[in-house]
């Protein structure tokens, strides 16, 4: 479900799912939770393969941000138009920095 790589000490988590919805949210939460417990503080969630996020999926993404703590930083990359719309509708675009690519997100994060 998730694949990871490091770019300049930032953990890129790519979600290999077409839909991030109520049926996928529990395993997504568990798997990404395990990554965060490994001491990650700066991460980019790469959503390029994701066509659809529902409220459950969004809830997990928000919970990740909370688990990273006050010093943590979580950015979003590659969100398509409907996913971006969900972020703007719920004002999560003011909470997460949104970028077209993981590289752009990392560049912004370490700038």
């Amino acid at each position: 479900m998730l694949s990871t790589e490091n770019i300049q000490d930032v953990l890129i988590v790519r979600v290999n799912e077409r839909r991030l919805d109520a049926s996928k949210a529990p395993s997504f939460k568990e798997q990404i939770g395990r990554l965060i417990e490994d001491g990650v503080s700066r991460s980019v969630l790469d959503l390029r393969d994701v066509e659809f996020v529902d409220s459950s999926g969004l809830g997990v993404i928000v919970s990740c941000l909370k688990r990273l703590g006050p010093a943590g930083n979580l950015a979003i990359a590659g969100a398509n138009a409907p996913v971006r719309r969900l972020f703007t509708l719920t004002r999560m675009d003011r909470v997460f920095s949104m970028h077209d690519t993981p590289e752009a997100a990392v560049a912004n994060m370490i700038a």
């Binding site: 409220s55 809830g59 928000v62 703007t88 509708l89 719920t90 004002r91 999560m92 909470v95």
Partner: peptide, 13 residues
């Protein structure tokens, strides 16, 4: 309307 925070995501909004 265009947007607004859901209830129960962030407390101080």
């Amino acid at each position: 309307g265009e947007s607004g925070f859901p209830i129960g995501v962030l407390q101080q909004v």
